[in-house]
């Protein structure tokens, strides 16, 4: 969901025209997805991993909602 929110919000906060910003968001989303999954599974406590991934998801969602 974090990766999805990054792509969804990128036209609002990304650089240049909407097309460029979406591409930029997709570039980040593809890199973020495996990193977040590895963090979520790799931490000793599943709760901690979930919290880290959830926090990134929340930030990405807030960027969608709050960006002008």
């Amino acid at each position: 969901m974090a990766a999805h929110f990054i792509t969804l919000g990128s036209p609002k906060w990304g650089p240049g025209a909407r097309h460029d910003a979406t591409i930029f968001g997709q570039m980040i989303a593809i890199a973020v997805f495996p990193i977040l999954l590895l963090i979520a599974v790799g931490t000793r406590s599943p709760l901690r991993g979930g919290l880290i991934a959830g926090a990134v998801c929340l930030i990405a969602a807030l960027a969608v909602v709050l960006s002008p």
Partner: peptide, 18 residues
């Protein structure tokens, strides 16, 4: 893996909500 997924990114990460 990265460039291939990126080329087809619109299928997984469309710029509209799921």
């Amino acid at each position: 893996a990265y460039s291939g997924t990126f080329i087809r990114a619109r299928t997984l990460f469309p710029p509209v909500s799921y």
